[in-house]
């Protein structure tokens, strides 16, 4: 087998072209610096940085995390440095990196989403925006926006009208029919959809009868949610006219391939970064090996090739 045959992992997601389909998910990779010693950012397809809001946010009181069977329940509450500190302190480090940087953004109101989009539109070093309408851990906005198709349309429209950057809308799984919110985002002009965010969950200490999280409820991530994520990506791919990024519980190249096969054009790795910081590099190498072993040259030959007997 010729090991030097040209393998292409390049994928095109509407206006966004990535050298490989492996991204890191918002909130699991900080602002890139945290893992830079172990994961050279330039190897990644793209990097989605921790969600930012107009003003800094303190986040929820601890405890914020609880491990479950195959999963991690968290209620961070979108703690972040805010727009100004992001632009002044984080962006100068991110800007020169030869990797597309996607900024995840979050607002308390429709207007705040629009303001954030406008403020980031003029900044150098940003390859795209990911609208967070799906965080389950904050009282205002977040999942409330994300589960109401009318609100999804308004938020995405507000962002779309204020930026020329590629717009990704991150969908919540905490809805009855995810294709409804996917369509709303698409109708409002999103370039790309990403799904899923965490699944709303809860844990209780039977000894003390207290919730494990100070926020009482949180969002479940990790391998426990992968089948849910895969099913939803597959459903959305059936009805969507825009590219889909799949995420939710991906910990290996096999997991990544499953999402690509059902039709995701790219994938994001989240919780797995905590367990195995080198996992994204292993997935990138693993995708190349997978193609080589099958005498294929292009990852696009795999995407959307689910065979339903």
């Amino acid at each position: 087998m010729a090991n030097d045959s040209p393998i292409s992992l390049t994928v095109e997601l509407g206006p966004l072209r990535l050298k490989n389909p492996v991204m890191v998910a918002s909130g699991t990779f900080g602002y890139g610096q945290e893992y830079a010693e172990l994961v050279p950012p330039e190897r990644l397809g793209a990097m989605v940085v921790k969600g930012i809001s107009l003003e800094p946010r303190s986040g929820n009181p601890p405890p914020r995390i609880w491990e479950t069977c195959g999963g991690m329940l968290n209620a961070i509450g979108l703690q972040n440095v805010g727009l100004r500190a992001f632009v002044e302190e984080k962006l100068p480090w991110l800007n020169p990196l030869p990797v597309p940087v996607i900024v995840n953004l979050f607002g308390n109101t429709v207007e705040e989403y629009g303001k954030l989009a406008a403020a980031l539109d003029g900044q150098e070093g940003i390859a795209g925006l990911e609208i967070n309408i799906s965080c389950p851990n904050v009282k205002a906005g977040g999942m409330i926006f994300g589960s109401d198709p009318k609100m999804v349309f308004q938020v995405v429209s507000a962002v779309r009208s204020r930026t020329n950057l590629p717009v990704i809308t991150k969908l919540t799984p905490n809805v009855t029919d995810i294709t409804v919110t996917a369509r709303a985002a698409q109708d409002a002009g999103t370039d790309i959809l990403s799904l899923i965010n965490t699944v709303a969950g809860m844990a209780v200490d039977a000894q003390t009868r207290q919730p494990r999280l100070a926020n009482v409820v949180g969002g479940l991530s990790g391998p426990a949610i992968k089948p849910i994520a895969l099913r939803m990506v597959w459903q959305v791919v059936q009805v969507s006219t825009v590219p889909v990024i799949g995420l939710g519980g991906i910990v290996s190249v096999e997991d990544a391939l499953e999402f690509l096969i059902v039709g995701a054009k790219a994938i994001q790795v989240g919780t797995a970064n905590f367990i195995n910081p080198g996992v994204t590099l292993e997935i990138i190498d693993g995708l190349e090996d997978y193609l080589r072993q099958r005498n294929l040259e292009d990852i696009n030959e795999i995407i959307g090739t689910l065979e339903v007997p």
Partner: peptide
């Protein structure tokens, strides 16, 4: 001491006021 997710400052789980 705190319950920790990542250990490197990425997940913001191990908060102390």
């Amino acid at each position: 001491e705190a319950l920790m997710g990542c250990g490197v400052g990425a997940c913001l789980s191990c908060s102390l006021r």
